[in-house]
Amino acid sequence: MAAQQALAGALADNTFVLRSVHGAAPVRLKAAAVQSRAATEFLAKRYRDGVSLRLGVQALFEEVVWGDDERSDDAEAAWQSLGEHLGFASSRPEKLYGTGPDNLWALSAEQQAVTELKTGCTTTTIAKSDMNQLGGSVRWLNNHNPEVKALPVMVHPSRVSDAKANTVPGMRVVTPALFAKLKEAVASYAAALAAAPERWADEQTVREQLAHHKLTGDRFFTTYAEPVTPS
């Protein structure tokens, strides 16, 4: 019993600790005070040299395999790590607590991206069940943390909603084409930081590169995602 209580408490300090068998209340995700500073601290701890930085970013995108449902968990883990590489507080509520979205990014103190990853789908439209899941995840955030605004996001091979589905207001879709655009931008971001020793540990340089590649919280999903369209 004492061990399980300790495990439940540890979630507040380490979101990668396994869930207690008794469950645990979801920990509210808090945005970094400064995105570029959070990205700098993460990169400086993770990478010793520019080669490992570039290879690390490349590996993230290789984990996302479209049309392969067996790789869905890999894609979700990669998306979570991508957020950290860019300075976003990032978590996987459904994985951690058995409830909530596949992924949550704190874009700012006021807004969080509620993301459902459907990279394993092969349908030409977004199914009603997937749309309902996204809507449910938005409600989860609204109930769990009503102080922030939810930005609904789906990573899906299609931006077209099924005729039977009710679209989630304000949702954005990351399609394979936009994912490829994002991959190129993040690879360029990493290459620029890796071009000289320790550039990725310099907050001003990281800030400039995040802005240049439109990877900031206010521009990311307007650049690398698009609105859903009816069928």
Rank of each mutant, 00 (worst) to 15 (best):
P152M: 12
N145M: 10
R139Y: 07
A127M: 12
S158T: 11
K149H: 12
W140D: 06
H156V: 01
S129K: 14
V155E: 06
A150I: 03
M154V: 15
V153S: 10
P146R: 06
K149E: 15
N143Q: 11
P146Q: 12
M131W: 10
A150C: 10
H156Y: 15
A150G: 14
P146S: 15
V148P: 02
V148Y: 07
N142T: 04
N143R: 09
A150K: 04
I126E: 11
V153Y: 00
A150Y: 05
W140P: 01
D130Y: 09
G136S: 07
P157V: 04
M154F: 03
P146K: 11
S137L: 08
N143W: 01
V153D: 08
N143C: 06
N142P: 01
R139C: 05
N132P: 02
H144G: 04
H144V: 00
V155L: 12
W140S: 01
D130I: 02
E147N: 00
E147S: 15
H156F: 14
L141D: 00
L151W: 02
N142M: 07
D130S: 12
V138G: 03
K149P: 00
D130L: 00
P152C: 14
N142L: 09
M154P: 02
P146L: 07
L134N: 13
V148N: 04
L141Q: 13
Q133L: 09
A150L: 08
V153A: 04
L134C: 11
W140N: 06
D130H: 14
P157A: 12
M154I: 15
L141F: 01
A150M: 06
S129I: 10
M154Y: 01
K128M: 07
W140C: 00
K149C: 01
E147F: 00
K128W: 02
M131H: 00
Q133C: 06
N143A: 11
K149V: 14
S129N: 13
A127F: 00
Q133D: 13
D130A: 11
N142F: 03
S129H: 09
K149M: 13
H156L: 08
H156M: 10
V153F: 04
Q133I: 03
V148E: 03
P152V: 11
M131K: 05
